[in-house]
Design a protein around this nucleic acid. Structure first.
Length: 409
DNA sequence: TCTGGGGTCCTAGGACCC
DNA sequence: TCTGGGGTCCTAGGACCC
């Protein structure tokens, strides 16, 4: 999408331009680790002319949808696992040549969307992930790796070359403990008795071992399950000291959380709020209080939820602290259709009016954007110190008219 | 001065029940 | 001085995912 930065040092920054969350190969070669604070590498960035972009979720979401819709053409059984990964179940097409299909996928996505992708195939999700890792890292495989056609010897040889850390579900802590027990490669892990793994680690890792052996333990999820908890939290662009100023982001975050709740047609039975000072500043007195309250009646009503959250905020706030982050959480979530009314409150006209108001609110947000209608806030025109910093946003090439790329004839 | 956000699952331990 | 057994539910914290 941005040919002018190909082969350059490029990073993408987290919210508030805080940390490096994505690096081009050139930056990885400089030894910049994932999660490095951006402000700590200004000198390096100057030396190597590293180009930094603020994260642009609208743009990534749009590109993701495009890629996923291309991939869906290859199988009706698709699980969108994350913004940049999906699983396709091909067991209903048993005679297909997966290596050929993989190349077709790569070529079509490259041509239609302009993004490079890699494709891995295996008999389980864990093996498919591992194959994908191989396809991505080993350039001689031209972006595709099919483990299903390898014989036992070739598979064992390949797994012997892959560190246990590169297996899905194994991160540093587990890796250290595995290595102490002599389990170093993916092949070692595959050959370990699942019962021993269960005893020494967990059922989660036991499933991984079985999956490495071709026994499917992790099913394809074609529809994302409803969320059991919904969190909205963000660091502020600048520190906040006053209760009135903290109330603004808490209101805004809860408004978002309530939207998500209604989108999955659920209601929440409990609300939590927390605020934090900057844990990296030794010179500050630290304060990170939180509070949770059960609602008398489950609801998805923005106004109720905001009111409750502000009440909790008042309870936990202490003056004199330098707050840099706030968050809200909705839990005890259940489908709105199963909602049990409280013993004393009848499903009154007022409740129904409120529900209709929420429908209007969601429609307005969908049409005019977030903030078009918001619960009474004291912050429309005041300078919003808490608003996120995004100094180096890439253009929203596909989601904003003014940012459409121009083609010069 | 500046250090991300949003999830799930599992386990252990405490409170409580019969 | 002696102090069961089996179960559920809840919470906190760890570990992991992207």
């Amino acid at each position: 999408m941005a040919p002018h930065i190909e082969k350059q040092c490029v990073v993408v920054l987290s919210n508030n331009d805080g940390c490096v969350v994505a690096r081009s190969a050139e930056v990885k070669a400089l030894g910049v680790p994932m999660g490095m604070p951006w402000h700590q590498m200004q000198e390096l960035a100057r030396q190597h002319r590293i180009v930094a972009y603020s994260s642009n979720y609208t743009y990534y979401g749009d590109m993701s949808r495009r890629v996923m819709s291309v991939l869906a053409q290859y199988s009706p059984d698709q699980e969108i696992y994350s913004v940049d990964e999906c699983f396709l179940d091909l067991t209903r097409q048993p005679h297909i040549d997966l290596a050929v299909m993989g190349q077709s996928i790569r070529q079509r996505v490259k041509q239609w969307i302009g993004l490079p992708v890699s494709v891995g195939a295996g008999h389980t999700k864990t093996l498919a992930k591992l194959a994908n890792h191989v396809a991505k890292k080993r350039t001689e495989r031209s972006g595709v790796c099919d483990l299903t056609t390898l014989d036992a010897g070739a598979t064992a040889a390949l797994l012997q070359t892959i560190g246990v850390r590169d297996v899905w579900g194994v991160v540093r802590k587990i890796e250290e403990r595995l290595v102490m027990q002599g389990i170093v490669t993916a092949a070692d892990l595959r050959n370990t008795d699942p019962a021993i793994i269960r005893r020494n680690f967990s059922v989660v890792l036991e499933r991984t071992v079985r999956e490495l052996n071709g026994v499917s333990c992790i099913a394809l999820e074609d529809a994302p399950p409803d969320k059991q908890q919904i969190i909205a939290s963000r660091s502020f662009g600048a520190p906040v000291y006053e209760l009135a100023q903290l109330a603004e982001p808490v209101r805004a975050y809860m408004t978002r959380a309530a939207e998500k709740l209604r989108r999955q047609h659920s209601v929440a039975g409990a609300v939590g709020v927390w605020i934090e000072t900057n844990r990296f500043r030794d010179q500050d007195v630290q304060h990170h209080p939180s509070a949770t309250v059960r609602l008398p009646e489950s609801t998805a009503d923005t106004l109720h939820l905001v009111h409750t959250a502000i009440g909790l905020l008042r309870r936990i706030y202490r003056s004199g602290h330098r707050y840099v982050k706030a968050g809200v959480m909705l839990t005890d979530i259940r489908p709105a259709a199963l909602q049990q009314g409280s013993l004393f409150a009848s499903a009154s006209e007022a409740t129904e009016k409120r529900a209709r108001l929420m429908t209007v609110l969601d429609a307005a947000t969908a049409k005019w954007g977030r903030g078009a209608i918001a619960p009474g806030t004291a912050g429309f025109s005041a300078p919003r110190a808490w608003a996120m910093k995004r100094a180096a946003m890439s253009p929203a090439y596909t989601t904003r008219w003014s940012d459409l790329p121009r083609v010069l004839a």
